Simulated scan of single mutants.
Amino acid sequence: MPKVLFALTSHDRLGDTGRRTGFYVPEIAHPAEVFTAAGWDVGVVSVKGGEAPRDGVKEGDTVSAAFLAAYADELKNTPSADQLDPADYDVIYFVGGHGTMWDFPGATDLAALASAIYSRGGVVAAVCHGPAGLLSADLDDGSPIVQGKQVAAFTNEEEAAVGLDDVVPFALETALIEKGAKITKVENFAAHAVADGRLVTGQNPASATRVAELAILQATPA
């Protein structure tokens, strides 16, 4: 059975706002539904291990509610990247949420895990703020995994639109460009996902399901 590993932030504070944050639940719940329906096994990992902080749960989102119920134990006791073997996973999927902006860029063990999955022929996927986890991921030759690749991520315009461009520690779109990514984007909050070989990325929460679909396609032998 193929297996996807969802990577989650361990950071729970939204800068100095006094607000809580974490991983954005719909960005794992809806993709997980796609993977399980396709016969995949689902695993989780977080930056620090233990219980992963969550955000974005909305009333009426039955898919997210079902996911949280089904994976309650896994989300409470996530492993850290150094406890996992990259050979066990066909896809790693970096879930967004504003918490990622604080801990994903420095999560070197998580980045190394993603690089190892990619180097052995696996797929690296990310959505919304999840591509922050790609900033430290390199290919075997030391070049950034995003260099020269089409990449979608939460845009500078979207960050300004939600009023958090002065709260996050850096501009994700700008940081990806500085790593050599070729940013592809559409209007604010519209669904947009792109596969550039085995690197699959999406712009925002509306893109999460399509990222899962594309990841499965890229991971499936022709």
Rank of each mutant, 00 (worst) to 15 (best):
L164Q: 13
T9C: 11
A114H: 04
D41C: 12
Q147K: 15
D73Q: 13
E213T: 08
T17L: 14
G202Q: 02
A107L: 10
E213P: 02
L139S: 02
D88Y: 05
T209P: 00
L164R: 08
P53N: 11
Q218M: 13
K179W: 01
V124W: 01
G106C: 09
L8H: 03
A111C: 10
M1S: 14
Q83K: 15
Y89T: 10
P31D: 01
S64C: 07
E187H: 02
L217E: 15
A215I: 06
Q147E: 11
G60W: 10
R19E: 15
Y71E: 06
K3I: 05
I92H: 03
H192F: 14
D109S: 13
D90K: 13
L214T: 03
V162N: 06
I183Q: 03
T201K: 01
F6W: 04
D141P: 01
G60E: 13
T155A: 06
V4K: 05
D196V: 06
E51G: 11
P105T: 12
A116F: 06
G43K: 01
I177W: 00
A66G: 15
D109E: 15
D55I: 07
R120A: 11
R210T: 09
P26C: 12
D103I: 09
K48D: 14
P26W: 04
A114D: 05
I28N: 00
Q203I: 09
R120L: 08
P31Q: 07
A222E: 13
V194G: 03
F35D: 01
G97M: 10
A132K: 02
T62Y: 05
A175N: 08
M1K: 15
G142P: 06
T62P: 03
G50Y: 07
H11C: 11
L199V: 10
V146W: 00
A125K: 01
H98N: 15
L214I: 09
L113G: 03
L135N: 07
D88A: 15
F189K: 05
Y118T: 04
A32W: 03
T209I: 12
Y93L: 09
Q203R: 09
D61N: 11
Y24Q: 03
D73W: 01
D16L: 08
P205R: 07
I177S: 09
T62E: 15
A52C: 11
S119W: 04
V186K: 10
P26D: 14
L134S: 04
R20I: 12
D61G: 11
G56Q: 09
V200L: 01
E74W: 02
S46E: 06
L214E: 05
A7N: 06
V45K: 00
D196K: 01
G43Y: 08
S207T: 11
T78N: 03
V25T: 10
V91E: 05
H11F: 06
A212Q: 03
R13M: 10
A190Q: 15
C128I: 09
E187P: 02
L8T: 01
K149C: 00
W102D: 06
I145W: 00
F189E: 03
N156M: 04
E74T: 09
L217W: 00
A206R: 14
D166A: 13
A132R: 05
A111R: 06
A112F: 05
A215D: 04
P2A: 12
H192D: 07
V91F: 06
V47I: 08
F170P: 14
E178W: 01
L8K: 07
